[in-house]
Design a binder for these strands. Structure first.
Lengths: 151, 151
DNA sequence: TCGATATAGATGCATTTGCATCGACCGTCA
DNA sequence: TGACGGTCGATGCAAATGCATCTATATCGA
């Protein structure tokens, strides 16, 4: 952990990243609200669970995938369960844990959110940059990931 | 507002942007907390007010600059005022409004936050990309801004 | 086997945020 | 002038978040 201060180009890039990402999230959340749909975080969880298939996921596995704190996952899953979008199953070999699985109406909700979310992504990002530019952007952002991954 | 769904490259770039920006914010907020310093939003406001100089800013001018809702600005300024980091002055030609000005200890706090925030920016972004890459990144992100600005 | 330690997940409490609305003041127009 | 719609900023209330801690179970080591 060095103590150096950032170069002007670094500050510019950082400021852009902070501002743009917040704008994009805000616009997308607004679109979801306008469609009477739940927030982005719900999509993230439903998406992960849909990818996981019938086996479902343990709550602790969701923590890193959706970048939520442990209590955040716990409470979000509770809300999803109340709405019947996921179900919690006891797991045989670990009495502390549970497995969370997406339900049919969870899959349906995911599709409905995606109709709006996907359109938002296309409008806010896909329409603004070429395919090559999108790949450049993804590569540069990839270099900022934690943990860093070579590509 | 088209209804098209996004291309795979768009989705990849979007996912990276969402994940990376959240990671960077989280790591930076953690660094501030570890240093006993207030959140990033405080820096944003103090920074804008410092740039504005002795004339200060009206609260409504801060809304777009720091991307906070009106009530968010109202409450954040109230907290900053309690801590003596800003002061509110009545404005002569508009009895509804006020002017907010940074105080000396506000400037000092800004400097102390920057010592940590700047180091975080340097570590998380400056150390990972070259100057040319940072400029490419900033340019691409600039194209996603709202409103769009030609450059 | 038992005690100590670690992990999975939930939750009480305080703080923060979002939403709606309010009171105060402004500008305009009759 | 005075009614009216618009803007500035604050706030009551509900929901979400952060923090610390709790319970329950699992794992490790003597």
């Amino acid at each position: 952990m060095t103590k150096t201060l950032p170069s002007p180009e670094t500050v510019t890039a950082w400021a852009r990243l902070m501002r743009v990402s917040r704008q994009l999230v805000e616009r997308t959340e607004d679109a979801l609200k306008a469609g009477g749909l739940p927030p982005l975080a719900w999509y993230d969880v439903l998406h992960e669970l849909a990818e996981a298939g019938e086996g479902g996921l343990r709550p602790f596995e969701l923590i890193d995938r959706v970048l939520l704190a442990q209590y955040g996952v716990s409470r979000l899953l509770a809300r999803l369960e109340v709405d019947g979008l996921v179900e919690k199953l006891p797991v045989s070999d670990d009495g502390r844990g549970q497995t969370v699985r997406i339900t049919p109406s969870g899959r349906d909700m995911r599709r409905r959110i995606w109709a709006v979310y996907g359109a938002s992504i296309a409008n806010l990002m896909g329409d603004k940059l070429s395919a090559a530019e999108l790949e450049t952007l993804a590569t540069l952002l990839g270099r900022l990931r934690d943990p860093p991954i070579m590509e």
